[in-house]
């Protein structure tokens, strides 16, 4: 098995768990402490630490300890510039489609006003 394949196995294993996917989702918005990560999931601290270890092993998340607090962030180092660009593109189009929804709603309002 190549290194790439075993790395992918770790990634897919990490993503197979709902709590770990939720952790990644949270970290996609901001850097968080372990307790901040744990709170919305309603799981124990040891369970959170175990999930974190799996995510770190897969190279998806990195954490560091500052004093008594461990902070976690997504590890984007594996992404190439082009991959980051695709992420940006996807988010941009998503915002445009949301803007279309707002535009359609404003047309509705306009129509209501016209009918008054």
């Amino acid at each position: 098995m190549t290194n790439y394949q075993s790395q992918m196995d770790r990634v897919f294993h990490a993503l197979a768990d709902r709590n770990r996917r939720a952790m990644i989702d949270q970290l996609s918005h901001s850097t968080l402490t372990v307790s901040e990560l744990r709170e919305p999931l309603g799981i124990s601290l040891p369970a959170t630490m175990q999930h974190l270890a799996v995510l770190e092993e897969a190279g998806l998340v990195r954490s560091r300890k500052q004093g008594r607090v461990r902070t976690c962030e997504l590890d984007r180092s594996a992404l190439s510039e082009a991959e980051k660009w695709i992420q940006h593109r996807r988010e941009f189009v998503g915002r445009q489609l949301d803007a279309l929804g707002a535009f359609l709603a404003s047309e509705d309002k306009q129509e209501d006003t016209d009918n008054d």
Binding site: I24, D25, S80, E83, I86, Q87, E91
Partner: peptide, 19 residues
């Protein structure tokens, strides 16, 4: 999707697109 161009780096953060 190409890179190596001199575009501004305003694709700073991704969301769930990795998933």
């Amino acid at each position: 999707y190409l890179d190596g161009f001199d575009g501004p780096k305003f694709w700073e953060s991704g969301t769930t697109s990795l998933l």
